[in-house]
């Protein structure tokens, strides 16, 4: 196996008496497209919040390329190369589409306010480069025609695409996608599935994907981890997961012992 980009070691978090995630082991090799599934409330988004530094694990450790992320603030985690999207879309509503992407790029723009006031060559070069890179990204995501529109005027599916574009603008090594196909119809979800795989190949990012649309997950993920009640109940290839009795039980209830749905 190639080197691990993200590694969770016996990671857990308690909120008071509630163990939202416990004893979770997870290894993502570089370049993998890994699915994270489980019933509602299983702790999937909590895992994302742990990785991105919104929560600090109370047990275990989280490593990015061998370096611990424990206690690292969200902005530093982003700087270390982790980009993410949100289950409930969190675009900067009043900013235009292209400005949202430029915010994602902020960390990579190395000019100061003084440069801006004096309009130094560096400032102009940096702004021109950022503009070009953002436009390329938007074109990739089919959003270029809407670049100057306010982000909150976009249709739902396009907002999800814009969130992915914004996360990619941070130039991440690891991209966390939280239910990118939520609320999409099957054909939109299918388009998105191809887009995600294409993003992984083109941008050479490692992707951890939370998704409820089973065709999406099964269709594009190379490996899948299943959570229930904050604990790992199965990990394997899509085929193995599809046949795993524990997974079927978690999704359908204990009484069902029929074959794969």
């Amino acid at each position: 196996m190639s080197e691990a980009l993200l590694e969770l070691r016996k990671t857990g978090i308690r909120f008071g008496g509630l163990r939202a995630v416990s004893d979770l082991d997870l290894v993502l090799p570089v370049g993998v497209l890994h699915g994270l599934i489980g019933p509602n409330g299983a702790g999937k988004t909590t895992v994302f919040n742990l990785v991105t530094g919104i929560y600090e694990p109370t047990e275990g450790d989280i490593l990015l390329a061998g370096r611990s992320l424990k206690g690292v603030a969200p902005a530093k985690v982003a700087a270390a190369g982790i980009g993410r999207t949100f289950q409930n879309i969190r675009l900067f509503a009043g900013l235009s589409v292209i400005e949202n992407v430029k915010v994602g790029m902020h960390r990579h723009l190395e000019s100061t306010l003084l440069d801006a006031v004096l309009r130094t060559p560096r400032y102009r070069r940096v702004e021109v480069e950022a503009e070009e890179q953002c436009r390329t990204l938007l074109e990739t995501f089919g959003l270029l025609a809407l670049a100057e529109q306010p982000a909150d005027s976009l249709a739902y599916g396009l907002r999800r695409r814009l969130e992915i574009a914004r996360a990619l603008a941070t130039k991440p090594r690891l991209l966390l996608l939280d239910e990118p196909a939520a609320g999409m119809n099957p054909s939109e979800a299918d388009d998105l599935m191809h887009l995600i795989r294409w993003v992984r190949d083109t941008f050479e990012v490692t992707i951890l994907l939370i998704e409820h649309h089973m065709p999406v997950v099964m269709g594009i993920c190379e490996r899948i981890t299943v959570l229930d009640h904050g604990a790992l109940i199965a990990e394997g290839s899509p085929d193995e997961i599809r046949r795993d009795p524990k997974v079927i039980e978690a999704y359908l209830g204990a009484d069902v012992h029929a074959g794969p749905a």
């Binding site: 991105t52 969200p74 902005a75 700087a79 994602g104």
Partner: peptide, 15 residues
């Protein structure tokens, strides 16, 4: 402007 919309989301974008 990004921070004023959402400080958390801005931080997660590396601001």
């Amino acid at each position: 402007r990004a921070v004023s919309h959402s400080r958390d989301a801005a931080a997660l974008m590396g601001i």
